[in-house]
Amino acid sequence: MARTRVGFLQGLLGSLPIVLAYFPVAVSFGVAAGKSGFSLAEAAFMSFIIYAGASQFLAIALLAGGAGPLLAIVSLLTLNARHLLYAPALLQRVRRTESARQLKVSWLWAHGLTDEVFASALGRLAMKDARWTESWQVGMGIGAYLAWGSGTVVGALLGGGAFERWPAVDAALGFLMPTLFLSLLLAMVEKRHWPVVVTAVAVFAVGSALFSASTGILLGMVAGGLVGMLPGPAAPQVVEGQP
């Protein structure tokens, strides 16, 4: 039986929903950075080197508000700490494949392992053929990375109101993140996962209300993971050769 190709080009094409979701958010970031007094070069530099949306918005708020560099660094790194769990969770799903044993360019694709790219990789592994390659991951990462970087530059150049003339398009682009995450969740979730999902959402809500959205995400992830360790239907049933 012919197997689906899962290479660089497929990854690049697969990044399209993320590209469409990232671009307008990155434009918004570019606009916000400009309004906060940062230059085009500074906004672009931040997008290409940090490449983490939520922490970039926080960074411009902190730095423009006069926060010291130490406070900014600690706050931003704390916000991004959830990324520590992404590669282990991804590799756990591909650990029995050739790719997982022989990672050659993880130094390259790791930089692109954002929330959405990570979720899309898990979505790929939830497909029927359940294949993942580093080339696919690089393609997916590059598409998303370029969308984020170019969106920032466009935003910084255009200024505010880039999509105001097309309100339906503006609204649709703003809603791509929820529909992307819902699609990915539908691709991954099975009946036995519902306790994990309910726990993650509930703990997120409490964590977000008490601390911040990013802390809520981290707490929700950890709480859901802990529920997955409990014996019972929520515990993952790992099958040889399957994610």
Binding site: R95, A119, A200, G220, M229
Partner: peptide
């Protein structure tokens, strides 16, 4: 990555997408 740590990480994947969906909404 097997055993309890593996179970944790497998569930973290689903939990993270669920939490990200909630955060986006």
């Amino acid at each position: 990555l097997s055993g309890r740590l593996g179970a944790f990480l497998a569930a973290v994947g689903v939990a993270s997408v669920a939490a990200l969906l909630a955060a986006s909404l």
